[in-house]
């Protein structure tokens, strides 16, 4: 290190520092703007092409401006059903995943018990598994219930196979649980236990303490987890593709249609979902900033 240090002195520290300072100030800024631009360009393309009137069956090349697709956003066979299925799956899946995941998170942070580290590790595994393996393995078990002993004699046909809405929801709850656990855990960890002790000292029992003190304080974490689960669920394609059978969600419908045509309605729905999501986040941020910071959260 000393060799390199003396070397710098020989070259001339001021010139080097100036170049470095200039680079840090402007190049990094420029790079950041370019990288963010790179992330946003496909979204911009999606919005622009929702106003396109394509010449052929595929909305790949700009032809002329038109509001046709926006005027009839669901005017494609199966599109409206697929969209409603997506929303239904996301709501039901998020509901169950949030409850199951929050309970695990509570147990992992609040209690010391045998098997805690193993559970932490186990929760991580589904997130580290590629989606295609999650989907494929679910498909094998669903198929097994219809074709293989002993599943065939235990599980009545129609529960898991043929595939459909129930199997999509089962899959979405499965892959969302881990994300909920991780998100809620992060929130509970910054939590001041003394508030609960104070409530207990003032005569509240555990049940009252939980609903009056604990739950309101970890609610932002639960809401964040639910939002994450909802967005993962409504956007999921790979796992859904394996578990949906003949039922379409919006992404599965797009995947099916793109073999033959790609109507601008796809871009309209995509843009609408994007705008609703961004609006939701903006409102949530605004509400949070209005509510101020929760006093009970310790700064880390």
């Amino acid at each position: 290190m000393t060799a390199a240090g003396s070397n710098v002195a020989v070259v001339g520290p001021t010139a080097g520092r100036r170049v470095g300072a200039f680079a840090e100030r402007w190049l990094l800024k420029l790079f950041t703007v370019a990288a963010i631009g790179y992330l946003l360009v496909p979204i911009l393309v999606m919005i622009v092409f929702s106003f396109n009137k394509p010449e052929g069956k595929f909305n790949f090349v700009w032809a002329e401006f038109s509001l046709d697709a926006w005027a009839a956003p669901l005017n494609r066979p199966g599109l409206s059903d697929a969209l409603w299925t997506s929303i239904l799956v996301a709501i039901v899946g998020t509901f169950f995943a949030t409850i199951l995941g929050t309970l695990i998170a509570l147990a992992l942070v609040r209690y010391r018990f045998r098997g805690r580290n193993a559970t932490n590790l186990f929760i991580f595994v589904p997130m580290a598994t590629p989606e295609i393996v999650l989907g494929a393995s679910l498909l094998t078990i669903f198929v097994s219930t219809a074709t293989l002993e002993p599943f065939k004699s235990i599980i009545p046909s129609g529960i898991f196979y043929p595939l459909g809405l129930p199997t999509i929801i089962i899959a979405h709850v499965m892959f969302n649980i881990s994300y909920v656990v991780v998100t809620v855990k992060a929130r509970i960890q910054g939590f001041d236990r003394h508030l609960e002790e104070a409530a207990m000292d003032l005569g509240a029992n555990e049940w009252t303490t939980f609903w009056k003190i604990t739950f309101p304080l970890i609610r932002p974490g639960i809401v964040a987890a639910a939002l994450l689960a909802f967005s993962l669920s409504i956007d999921d394609f790979i796992v859904t593709n394996f578990t949906s059978g003949l039922v379409n969600t919006f992404p599965v419908w797009v995947w099916g249609t793109i073999r033959n045509n790609l109507p601008p309605q796809v871009h309209v729905i995509g843009t609408a979902i994007f705008l609703i999501a961004v609006g939701g986040v903006a409102i949530a941020t605004w509400l949070q900033s209005r509510g101020g910071r929760t006093v009970a959260m310790r700064p880390r």
Binding site: V41, P42, I43, V45, M46, F49, S231, D235, F237, F250, P251, V254, W255, I258, L262, V266, H267, G270, I273, F274, A277, V278, V281
Partner: peptide, 11 residues
């Protein structure tokens, strides 16, 4: 993430 994975690829 607020747009569909498939639509981003289509873009």
């Amino acid at each position: 993430f607020f747009t569909s994975f498939l639509i981003r690829t289509i873009s």
